[in-house]
Design a protein around this nucleic acid. Structure first.
Lengths: 349, 349
DNA sequence: TGCTCACCTTGGAACGATCAAGACGATCCC
DNA sequence: GGGATCGTCTTGATCGTTCCAAGGTGAGCA
């Protein structure tokens, strides 16, 4: 069979136009509106009519044109989420898990997730355009680690959004948010170690300007203080890199002689493991280590890094629930939701 | 100030309708079409008119309504991509990096990425609906590891899509695809080890039903054969888990006495590292190990796992280029694109 | 038979953009 | 000077859906 010249094309090659409401209506012998009702308000139709229409829909493989529906209803059923570049050299893989949970949960609620990127320096890139062109119904704002300019900006424009991360710098913020209680997580980890007899538990966390870091740190100190134990000299605040964790743990081992480490991240915990290895200390037997985030690294490394695991699946569910409330008529905005992490125990503790 | 009762609301609370083309037209004293041209075909306007219209657009903060534009132009400027659940307990973090690259590159081409989920058992979930409702212009199909039913299905429906992964089971497939040459990667890794004097290099890969696994394996055997070295007894095919890698490497060490390992994944390589640790062997000094994918695990583990790194950023660029060709008028579909991975060298080699 | 009522169904008008074609000077050329 | 051409802008129709208000139909009742 010879190829027909470009331009004319075979009939089958012509991109056949998808069926429309009118096509279905004609086939079912009813009007457009009846088909629309069959799709959106089936209760309004007599049973046999409904069946006939559904049959026609099925026969033709009809699915409502999203653009037309969006235009009429002023809703896109799309949720925008900005993603920032993955950081190389760290164990931060929470986004992967969270994004997937969000996509999954959104689907059940009839929404899709639209990703967009932005410049690292300007946290507002992308939001503005998507908002004004009514491309998305709402946003999920995730990167709230250093204050939250997006939240203030979106709130000002009355754009519907839910933050994953509490409004650290503005406790009076009125937007819905969902967060994981980092302090509860480190408290859990620290208390677990205390229960196993540890008395000197060190902390390696992030620099003081990180709200999340300070929150996680507070769980560690809270747990120690609750048992009347001191924290002095047992804490270190460094960059979130493996080598920083290694150096900090070396110093702490020399100066404070801890028997266990709780870390603000798995990245830092990996640094601790490196130092232990260098000194011939066996993690889990000689020194216990617990990280944070339950990354793939924690799951794969030998002998398994114990870690605080964020309930990202639950977070996604809560976020979608909040979004649904926000987009309902009238909108309902509930209070912030705080979730408690769990402990994934492995060989290092 | 007392709150006005619900329903009436203050003026500021009323969700103000975004400006439309007509608003801009009125403000600029021109017709709708002229505004449309100012946005889409600026060359058609006289300079002063253009300036006046742009001014009005800026004043009003106008941005074309996506739904309306989509309806008229029959295009959504959205690219659909299905994501499958992240696998726990493995080091497969390539998706994270790829998705980000894709989002970034798409943006430059004027596209956004829409994520959707599907059941693990039915690889077609989601595609159908998005396609029929014309919600996306095209798809990026990623999970082509076991044949590729989506590709055949989409091709049959003449849906525009680009596959990340070559059409293993159908070399005659006519759809555009982009892939990374796994064999070249493992060849690179093996040859590197050979250059460093290794003679007995073992392979730990996946079960035989994995096209990708066999491809990667062929690079290893190719490199050995090129130097006249045998492969017999040096290969093992197992599940993609850490413990499988550990067991396989233990057996290989006992029976074949290799001095180096090349693995089909970082997960398997982590298993090798565990076995080496158990036996008091130092990776990089006593035995070299090279993994595949350059996951976060490889970057974070001590002493750094050498790994074959896929050029995912380049892949995203190629994919978007192919998509643009596919969506152009008339569509142009180029040949498949094969990219060569690089070697990320670290402590284990 | 005539009336009401409930229940479906119907045609027309948005939604906000682009497409196709037309209007209107000004310019050009023979 | 008249007709064709060009550049610039305007007008009316259209994309496919949902909203709106009115129209039909049959059952139930007096």
């Amino acid at each position: 069979m010879s190829r027909t010249p470009a331009g004319t094309g075979r009939a089958a090659r012509v991109p056949t136009t998808p069926p429309t409401l009118a096509d279905v209506a004609e086939r079912a012998g009813v009007s457009r509106q009846t088909v629309s009702n069959a799709v959106n308000n089936p209760d309004l139709l007599r049973a046999d009519t409904l069946a006939r229409v559904l049959r026609a829909i099925d026969d033709l493989g009809y699915s409502p044109n999203r653009a037309a529906r969006n235009l009429r209803t002023r809703a896109s059923h799309l949720i925008g989420m900005r993603i920032s570049p993955a950081q190389e050299g760290t164990a931060n893989a929470t986004m992967d898990r969270f994004v997937h949970s969000l996509v999954e949960t959104s689907r059940e609620a009839g929404y899709h997730v639209l990703l967009f990127a932005g410049d690292a320096d300007d946290p507002l890139t992308g939001y503005d355009d998507l908002l004004r062109s009514t491309a998305v119904d709402a946003f999920v704002v995730t990167d709230t680690y250093l204050g939250n300019p997006q939240a203030a900006w979106l709130e000002e424009r009355r754009a519907p959004f839910v933050a994953f991360g509490r409004p650290w710098d503005n406790p009076a913020a009125e937007h819905p948010w969902v967060d994981v209680d980092g302090a509860a997580g480190t408290d859990l980890a620290t208390s677990y170690l205390l229960d196993r007899g540890h008395q000197r538990i060190a902390w390696i966390g992030w620099r003081k300007d990180s709200w999340i870091g300070e929150d996680r740190r507070s769980g560690w100190s809270r747990a120690l203080h609750a048992r009347g134990l001191p924290t002095t000299g047992l804490a270190s605040r460094v960059e979130d890199t493996v080598s920083s964790g290694a150096e900090a743990s070396a110093v702490l081992l020399d100066e404070a002689h801890p028997t266990a480490f709780v870390c603000a991240s798995d990245t830092l915990a990996m640094g601790v493991l490196r130092t232990l290895g260098d000194r011939g200390l066996v993690p889990g037997r000689d020194i216990s280590v617990i990280g944070f985030d339950d990354s793939q690294v924690a799951q794969v490394v030998w002998p398994g890094l114990s870690s605080v695991r964020q309930p990202l699946e639950d977070a996604a569910v809560e976020i979608v629930t909040a979004l649904e409330g926000l987009l309902a008529h009238p909108p309902t905005v509930g209070p912030g939701v705080m979730l408690t992490p769990t402990l994934a125990l492995r060989g290092t503790s």
